[in-house]
Amino acid sequence: MLKKILKPFARLFEFQARTHYRMERHSMALTFGIIIAASIGGIVEIAPLFTIDDTVEVDPDMRVYTPLEQAGRDIYIREGCYACHSQMIRTLRDEVERYGPYSLAVESQYDHPMLWGSKRTGPDLARLGDKYSDDWQVRHLVNPRDLVPESVMPQYAFLLEKPLRTDDLSDRLGALRAVGVPYTDDMILNAADDAAGQAFPDGDKADGVTERYGDATAVRYFDGRRDRLTEMDALVAYLQILGKLTDLPAKMQPIAEE
């Protein structure tokens, strides 16, 4: 019985061995053999993700990151926060109860690159937005152990002192538009002003932010400082928008919301 089952495999291996024996005398034959064998899996698994429509849900109300939030995201990447924090709630009961509705593909469709992460030394951050106050976030980043004594997270007090660079934000938004994020010319042109405007609600640039990004956009002194725009402003603005670009997950998973 076993012999009968294995017989076709034996013939396959026989064929493979004979073919290979001839191939290994020609370096180019090996080269093309390797390229072909190693390409198939990638093509089958990746290419359809771009073409099958229901891979990513559609939400016409999906919002883009403001320049300040995008700058915060770039800081999040720069500091390697993704090494310890995931942004991907899996479809498991305990994760939904701990962190909120499970993550949808649409939520990261403007994330170049994605930050789903692979390790939770700290908790998942996919639904962190508005979970804590700005003040809590700032104090936690300055010294995590002031608020959570057991924490092993590094301190980021220097962000509060470091002025945010805004002169390259137009370039950054422009590059993001080129790879597929729907920023308008207006948004790209005013990126630096909007970044400053979002962190100074009393300033004259604040109105432009809500005009371009919608009335629901949070315009606050994120870092609590009124004298200057810091990297802390950007990072906190980003943390407070996590999970709030679209309300599709909450709509699709009403039970988990209770």
Binding site: E45, I46, L49, F50, T55, V56, A105, V106, E107, S108, Q109, Y110, D111, H112, P113, M114, W116, R172, A175, L176, V179, G180, V181
Partner: peptide
């Protein structure tokens, strides 16, 4: 900025 985003980038 990566050419890919979200789920395609993850894969």
């Amino acid at each position: 900025y990566s050419l890919f985003s979200g789920v395609q980038d993850a894969m």
